[in-house]
Amino acid sequence: MTQTIERPEVEQETRTALRPDLPWQTIVWDDPVNLMTYVSYVFRTHFGFTPDEAERRMLLVHHEGRAVVASGPRESMEAHVEAMHGYGLQATVQRSSG
């Protein structure tokens, strides 16, 4: 006598851990050429920072050698870097660490 064993249907759940795309950052670097007042002016003009915020970020550039001035999609950050180069400032794009 042959016995048929029915296998219950088991739904297998497949989960893919989707890590959201980390934002990119525009970094402005210190240089020996531009005056601190000019860097603050650029930050106010281009990014729309308040005078206090522009001053704070300029001082980060001056004392720490760099400051994050924007964060977002890579294409936008690359546009900011090009703009900073147009103002004569040294800037790069980097991936946010989280």
Rank of each mutant, 00 (worst) to 15 (best):
A91M: 02
F47G: 14
E75R: 13
D52H: 13
Q3M: 05
G48R: 00
T2K: 09
N34E: 06
V93D: 00
T4A: 02
L59Y: 12
H85D: 01
S96W: 09
Y41C: 03
R57D: 00
G86I: 11
Q90C: 06
Q3C: 09
Q12F: 09
T4G: 08
A79Q: 14
D31G: 15
H85Y: 04
V42Q: 11
Y38C: 04
V69S: 06
E53H: 14
T14C: 04
E13A: 11
V93L: 06
V42Y: 10
P8T: 15
D52K: 10
M36V: 01
D52I: 10
G88M: 02
H63L: 05
R7D: 12
S76N: 09
A83W: 02
V68E: 07
A83H: 00
R19M: 08
A54N: 06
Q90F: 11
A70K: 04
M36G: 04
E82Y: 00
D52E: 15
T92P: 07
S76L: 14
S40M: 13
R66V: 00
Q94R: 13
R15P: 02
M36I: 07
A91S: 12
M1A: 11
A83T: 14
W24I: 00
I5A: 02
R44H: 09
S97Y: 08
V28L: 05
R44N: 07
Y87D: 02
M58G: 07
S76M: 12
S76W: 10
T45K: 15
T45H: 15
T92C: 03
G88L: 07
G48D: 11
G86N: 01
R57Q: 13
R44E: 15
E6C: 00
R74V: 10
P20G: 12
A91K: 04
W24P: 08
M84T: 00
V93T: 15
Y87V: 05
A79F: 06
R95M: 07
A17G: 00
Q94S: 11
R15E: 12
G65T: 09
G98L: 05
W29P: 12
E82D: 08
L35F: 05
T14D: 11
V33Y: 15
V69D: 02
T4M: 05
E78N: 01
T14P: 04
T92A: 01
V61K: 00
